[in-house]
Write a protein that binds this DNA or RNA. Structure first.
Length: 418
DNA sequence: TGACGTCAAGATCCG
DNA sequence: CGGATCTTGACGTCA
C-alpha cells in the first residue's frame, strides 16, 4: 500500500513548478523553465523519500507547453542527463510515478484536430515517463472525454481512438471514471473493449454513480481485475468534497476520521491510493502515518516539528494539548494528533496569537540577523500590527532568513507556507 | 459567448 | 516602493 499526492508540493523550498506563456515561449525560456522544473521535481521526490511517500503524480506542466506546436524543444535529448538522474533516484527508492493529462486532453472528440492534439499530448506524457526510464507501472491516467449528445457513440469513438494509439502509449494508459459523464459502469465497459486498466475514483463515483447497485468497496474489488501484473498494483483516487454545496470540488485536507473509516472498509489493502486534495503532501503524510503499523513516537515528532508554529499561531491551548499527547511515547496516538491539527486548521487566526508566534520564531534570528535585517523585520512587523499589511510579508521574510542562515529547524515549518 | 477548473504569471491598483 | 488583488492564459465541452 502506498499513498500519494498530485503535482504540487507544500512546505519545502525550490519545489514550485514554472509555467510559460505562449508569448514567452521561445527556446531559451522553455529550456530554462524545463530545467528549473526538473530540479523542483527532484526536490519534491527527495521530500517524498524522506517522508515515506512512494507514490507521486508528476505535473503535466513539468515541461511547459510540451505538446504545443510552439514548443520545438528536444527536451528529452537536451535534458537527458537530468532526466536519467531523476529516474535513477526514483528507481533507487522504488517510487511509483504517474501523470494525468487534464480534462482538455480528449481523444473521443468528433473533431479530428482535437483528437490529433490530444494524441500529441499523450505522446508527450509517454515520452516523459520513458525519458526517466520508468517501468510500465508508471501510468498515464486519462478521462474518457465528452458526450456530444450520444454517450454510446462517444464511448465507441473513445475505443476506436484508443485502439489506434501506439503500443508505447497504450502500455501506460489507464482510464478513470469521471464526475459528470462516464461512470464506473461505463469505464468497465470500455475496459472490456480496450483492456485499459481502470483507476476507480471514489469521489467521482459518489457524485456520478452508475445504476448498478455496487458500493465503493465492491467497485474497487471489480476494478482490481483490470490490473495485470505488468501494470503494477491497482490504483485508485481518493478525495473528499470541499463541502455540501461543492461536492465535486476537492477538500482542503483529508479528514483523519473519514480516511481511516475508508481504509478499514477496503477489502484488499495492497493497493495504491492517490489522494486528490488541496493540501497535497500534508494529507499524504498524514494518511500514511494514520495507517502505519509500526508508527513510532519519532514519526509524530517529525510532523510536529513542521506544524508546531502553525498550531501556536492559531491557539495556544491546542498547542499544549498536542504537546501533552506526544508525551505518550509508547503508544503514539496519530489519530488524536491529526485531529488536533485539523482543529487548529479550522480556527481563525487571531493577531495576538500570531504575533506571539512570530516573536517566538524571531528568537532564532535575534543574534544572527544583521542590523538591516532586524530593521526590515521590524518595519514589516509594524505594518502588520497596524493592519497596513497582512502577516504574509513577515512570514516570507522570516522564511528567507531561515534559508539564508540555514536554520534547518525553521526552514520546513509549515507556518511559513499555510 | 462564458462557465467550468487549475494554477502561476502578469497587470494593475493602493497607500 | 511594497504589497494586495484582479485578470489572463492554456486547454475543450456544453449550455
Amino acid at each position: 500500500m502506498s499513498i500519494g499526492y498530485a503535482c504540487l508540493h507544500i512546505g519545502s523550498s525550490d519545489t514550485k513548478i514554472k509555467t510559460v506563456r505562449l508569448k514567452d515561449a521561445n527556446e531559451a525560456n522553455l529550456l530554462k523553465s524545463s530545467r528549473f522544473n526538473l530540479n523542483a521535481l527532484e526536490n519534491i521526490l527527495r521530500y517524498n523519500v524522506d517522508n515515506n511517500i512512494k507514490l507521486f503524480r508528476i505535473s503535466s506542466d513539468i515541461i511547459p507547453l510540451a505538446s504545443h506546436e510552439s514548443n520545438e524543444l528536444r527536451w528529452w535529448e537536451i535534458l537527458k542527463p537530468e532526466l536519467i538522474n531523476l529516474g535513477q533516484f526514483a528507481k533507487n527508492n522504488e517510487l511509483r510515478l504517474s501523470m494525468h493529462p487534464g480534462q482538455y486532453t480528449v481523444i473521443n472528440s468528433p473533431y479530428e484536430d482535437v483528437v490529433k492534439r490530444a494524441i500529441d499530448d499523450l505522446k508527450y506524457h509517454q515520452r516523459f515517463l520513458d525519458s526517466i526510464e520508468m517501468p510500465l507501472e508508471a501510468k498515464i491516467v486519462l478521462h474518457i472525454g465528452g458526450m456530444y449528445g450520444n454517450k454510446t457513440e462517444a464511448m465507441k469513438r473513445f475505443i476506436k481512438s484508443y485502439k489506434g494509439l501506439g503500443e508505447d502509449i497504450k502500455n501506460r494508459l489507464v482510464i478513470e471514471n469521471d464526475d459528470k459523464i462516464f461512470n464506473a459502469e461505463d469505464v468497465l465497459r470500455i475496459y472490456n473493449e480496450t483492456g485499459a486498466p481502470v483507476v476507480f475514483d471514489v469521489l467521482h463515483d459518489m457524485v456520478n454513480p452508475s445504476n448498478e447497485n455496487k458500493d465503493t468497496y465492491e467497485w474497487i474489488k471489480v476494478f482490481e481485475g483490470t490490473w495485470k501484473d505488468i501494470d503494477g498494483k491497482q490504483k485508485i483516487h481518493y478525495s473528499e468534497s470541499k463541502n455540501q454545496n461543492e461536492k465535486r470540488s476537492h477538500s482542503e485536507y483529508i479528514k483523519s476520521e473519514s480516511f481511516l473509516s475508508f481504509y478499514s472498509n477496503l477489502k484488499n489493502k495492497d493497493i495504491d491510493i492517490m489522494l486528490e486534495v488541496k493540501d497535497k503532501n500534508l494529507s499524504a503524510v498524514k494518511c500514511g502515518n494514520l495507517i502505519k503499523k509500526d508508527l513510532k513516537a519519532a514519526d509524530l515528532e517529525k510532523e510536529w516539528g513542521k506544524y508546531k508554529y502553525y498550531v501556536l499561531s492559531k491557539d495556544a491551548n491546542t498547542y499544549k494539548d498536542i504537546r501533552e499527547l506526544l508525551k505518550n511515547k509508547d503508544k503514539p496516538n496519530s489519530m488524536g494528533f491529526y485531529e488536533l491539527i485539523e482543529k487548529a486548521f479550522n480556527m481563525d487566526t487571531k493577531q495576538g496569537n500570531d504575533i506571539n508566534t512570530i516573536q517566538h520564531i524571531w528568537g532564532y534570528f535575534k543574534d544572527l540577523a544583521t542590523l538591516d535585517e532586524t530593521e526590515t523585520f521590524n518595519k514589516k512587523m509594524e505594518r502588520y500590527k497596524s493592519m497596513k499589511a497582512t502577516n504574509r510579508p513577515v512570514k516570507e521574510y522570516m522564511l528567507k532568513l531561515s534559508e539564508k542562515y540555514d536554520v534547518s529547524y525553521l526552514r520546513n515549518s509549515l507556518y511559513f507556507y499555510i
